[in-house]
Design a protein around this nucleic acid. Structure first.
Length: 468
RNA sequence: GGCCCCGUCGUCUAGCGGUCCAGGACAACUGGUUUUCAUCCAGUAGAUCGCGGGUUCGAUUCCCGCCGGGGUCACCA
């Protein structure tokens, strides 16, 4: 394959906290798009806003991405030919400044001395923009000179032309959008602290890193004309740009927010969801294969990936399918794998052998790792019986009687209980549910006989007696 | 409000002018397996394809309008 046609995609998160579930999706799509055609997937950290940076979040992003199997071919920790891959470290490269100065010289940008708005001001004003042109664009060279000698630090803005149009065809939407430049802002490119804004940095970095396909959130779509203008004025080729759908809150009202939802990948992992399941779940939120396959491993996804499958309308974040997916992946894990994930959840007093004994019993009923605790808790200690246990106590004396005289193996126990229900003509469903509740204090449990065997005859008898 | 995007079962979606009185998955419900619950299996129900106009012999599929939803309008990304 011609090396100039290698697909190069990137995931470019800001280190402002834990990896967002939507970020995971973006990363997965970029990963699949690249790997599907033997291209490269690049990780770039966009940390040009020092104020918002959260300590430790870059490392967290690395480990979380890796937990999902999304390894990057170039980026922090692994290197590559186009580093550094952390934006703040790229400032010293001088490319941002050089680009801004080029635009300045060619009359495509101008110095701006306006006072930046504080977050509070933005909030309180809440005024909609009606003026797209910044007053500083009319400053004379003399005025600029004077301000700079007076010690004012200038920022650099894009001098957006009037009366023109700019357009692109969206890689995800498959649709061409055209903007009149009159309503495109004189966007900030280089801040007065010398750091680039996103608008400048993406263009410069994506170009230098030879990115061929840009996949990003839909919220970036409105600022695309700015980027297009920068590409144009810098004389740079425009990569494919695609805007992914926004994931909506479960009620469909608004973009997925952490207000009422868990949006942190780390948290889902901590809650006992498998990375495979989480990934599979978000994959299907915004992309679908022609044949509607819904169970994917990462490599299957890469193999079947097709940009035509990108969805155009915003999906709701409805967790229901995640639980199902998680159960599916859980069932495919070996008992040993499950053990390695759940052992730390148990009371350290409980011997590993006992935990291993219980895993095959609980496995099929688990939707998440943590379920094993509620499923098997009654095996390790006497359950807390709810006040309204709702059992038919009439059965108890017979059960105690029958079990007391039974040998303590599967066949014996089942035979004696079976004979009992037959002899007394008991309603089997009712009878066994009573026994289940008496033994476990809950309705959903691993197979009863096996559980009773592990618990032991004496303990079972004593539990039954305590309820009479 | 300006600009931009989107609109098929409750949810995720297939569908790219006739093969669709619209298919699949999850959820729901029913039955079977399980001595019971869960799992598993089978089945049932669920969408006048947002609405109204066109174009066409024929529109879920193409065009326009409306309505509805979402996004965005910082020296944040």
């Amino acid at each position: 394959m011609d090396s100039t046609h290698v697909v190069r995609t990137r995931f470019a998160p800001s280190p402002t906290g834990s990896l967002h579930i939507g970020g995971l999706r973006t990363a997965a799509y970029a990963y699949a798009l690249a790997r599907h055609s033997d291209g490269k997937f690049i990780l770039r950290i966009e940390d040009t806003d020092q104020k918002r940076e959260v300590a430790g979040s870059t490392e967290q992003i690395y480990s979380t991405l890796r937990a999902f199997g999304l390894d990057w071919d170039e980026g922090p920790e692994v290197g590559g030919d186009f580093g550094p891959y952390i934006q703040s470290e790229r400032v010293s490269l001088g490319s941002y400044k050089k680009a801004a100065e080029k635009l300045l010289q060619e009359g495509r940008a101008f110095y701006c001395f306006c006072k930046p708005k504080s977050k509070e001001e933005i909030k309180s004003e809440r005024q909609f923009k009606i003026e797209f042109r910044d007053p500083c664009r009319h400053l004379t060279p003399e005025e600029i000179e004077a301000k700079i000698t007076a010690g004012e630090k200038p920022a650099i803005r894009l001098k957006t032309p009037d009366g023109e149009t700019i357009s692109y065809t969206d890689y995800v939407l498959g649709k061409t959008t055209t903007w009149k430049t009159d309503i495109v802002d004189d966007a900030m490119l280089l801040k007065s602290d010398g750091f680039p804004t996103y608008h400048l940095a993406v263009v410069v970095d994506d170009t230098e890193m030879k990115i061929t396909h840009v996949l990003r959130g839909h919220d970036w779509q409105p600022s695309t004309p700015i980027h297009l203008l920068v590409y144009k004025f810098l004389g740079l080729p425009v990569p494919e740009i695609g805007h992914l759908t926004d994931i909506l809150n479960p009620d469909g009202k608004g973009k997925l927010s952490k207000r009422n939802n868990n949006v942190s990948c780390e948290q889902y992992l901590a809650d006992g969801y498998l990375p495979e399941a989480i990934l599979n779940f978000v994959l299907l939120l915004g992309w679908a294969p022609k044949d509607n396959q819904d169970l994917f491993t990462l490599s299957e996804f890469v193999e079947k990936f097709d940009p035509k499958g990108f969805q155009k309308s915003n999906p709701r974040f409805d967790i229901a399918k995640l639980d199902w997916l998680n159960g599916q992946f859980l069932k495919r894990q070996s008992d040993e794998e499950i053990f390695s994930h759940v052992k730390s959840l148990f009371d350290p007093q409980i011997p590993a052998e006992k935990i291993k004994q219980v895993i095959p019993l609980a496995k099929e009923r688990m939707h998440r790792y943590g379920d094993i605790l509620s499923l098997t808790g009654f095996i390790f200690s006497t359950p807390q019986y709810p006040a309204d246990l709702g059992i038919n106590k009439d059965y108890l004396p017979d059960i105690i009687n029958s079990l007391s005289t039974s040998d303590w193996d599967k066949v014996s126990i089942e035979t004696s209980l079976n004979e009992l229900t037959k002899a007394k003509n008991y309603n089997r469903s009712d009878f066994f549910m009573t026994l289940r509740l008496a033994v476990a204090g809950q309705k959903v449990t691993p197979p009863l006989t096996e559980s009773m065997i592990i618990i032991g005859k004496d303990e079972i008898i004593s539990r039954l007696k305590s309820l009479t």
